[in-house]
Design a protein around this nucleic acid. Sequence first.
DNA 1: CCCCGGCAAATTGTATACAATCTTTTCCTT
DNA 2: AAGGAAAAGATTGTATACAATTTGCCGGGG
Lengths: 223, 223
Amino acid sequence: MTDALKSTRSLNVTEALRELLLQGEFDPGTRLQETWLAERMQVSRTPIREALRVLAKDGLLEYAPNKGYSVRRFSLEDIVSAFRVRSVLEGLGCRLIAERGLSEALRTTLQSTLQSGENLLQSGQLERGEFDEWREMNKAFHLAILLETHNDLLVRFAKQSRNIPIVFNGSFRWYSLREFQRAHDHHQVIFDAMNQQQPERADFMMQEHVMHAAHILKKNYKD
Amino acid sequence: MTDALKSTRSLNVTEALRELLLQGEFDPGTRLQETWLAERMQVSRTPIREALRVLAKDGLLEYAPNKGYSVRRFSLEDIVSAFRVRSVLEGLGCRLIAERGLSEALRTTLQSTLQSGENLLQSGQLERGEFDEWREMNKAFHLAILLETHNDLLVRFAKQSRNIPIVFNGSFRWYSLREFQRAHDHHQVIFDAMNQQQPERADFMMQEHVMHAAHILKKNYKD
DNA sequence: CCCCGGCAAATTGTATACAATCTTTTCCTT
DNA sequence: AAGGAAAAGATTGTATACAATTTGCCGGGG
């Protein structure tokens, strides 16, 4: 029996709370009281406390001994800094893949995501605010590269660097068709560079790609 | 009164346990039972559980719901991968500093650590296995650069990437005088590159510096 | 001999009681 | 009225009791 999806209240609460924080449900600076959360989540303080500690370690909450947890405030500078870190991490991922060459499996996966991107751009749906498919495609592209590196720490850090409210699911809300096209071009060049075993080019273009997203966010984000 | 150093049992246990793990006190794969740890640490299971969860998030322990925690096994490949990640992170740190130029404070700090390195190389103490001062100097050099970036995520990731047993305090045990000299040369070049605002060179040399340490470890580490 | 229910022991997960610390209010002093 | 100790309340930290789940063991059936 495939029971690999077993869980506990503590883990469930952690993910539920994370989602709330990423959605911006709580204003920055808000103090999160354990009893209040426990009541809201319909569990005791024990799993709440474990969740809070984990989320603080993830940088979403701030903690002071004997005083409790509060929602972290992310300045625009914090967010851009996080993008910069992510850019070198994902850049390294591309470099590692390019050095050893694309596996058949990864080539197939990436070509599939590129095709999805192509289709989405043709359909014109992207102008009507239907971002979900694009988001999914984009996530698949970036994650496939990361996983293929087989570098646990790289994957962990790259994932963690996206755990930021408002930004967590991409800044596509501000993308024009032109921007989607540019992102798609980036994806294609990155694929091409890895496919031709050009580590430097793959690394550089991925950094460019990530930092361009940061640039767009910087232009539109009002704090 | 300076009571900024207040703490809790949970935090103390976390750091104590982390230290034990980094020192290799427990064999990889060992299951860490809460009651056993609680007895050994002279506290109840509550702070133990919080510590275990944090250390699992740090990658030092593995966790399975309803089954508990066990000591993670680090293969040589895992360790080298972690070095590669750290190299690009610290490389980015140097790049950022070099781009904006050295602050007077950082220049002073780094020159001080370089002087310490010079003195240690002259004294010949390094051959007698007195690594503590070198370790301290090295840590000060790397940390000063990271902190000056004011990039929280970068600092957090770079610190976290060193949380690996056996390696956590440098692989100086295998350094010959020649190796210490080379490391010192690297430090000087990195400083020079940042001082002359040469981001590319600073980044590259820091990566070289970190990966050279990985190379030495790879040669000597028996698993 | 193997397998596999199922009971018993051990271990983790959760709730709750109690202790320690922090925060707020009160009320006295100046 | 301002300041500040001291008590009352609220909140976090820790221990422990209880529940749920897993693990080990035993015996019966194939």
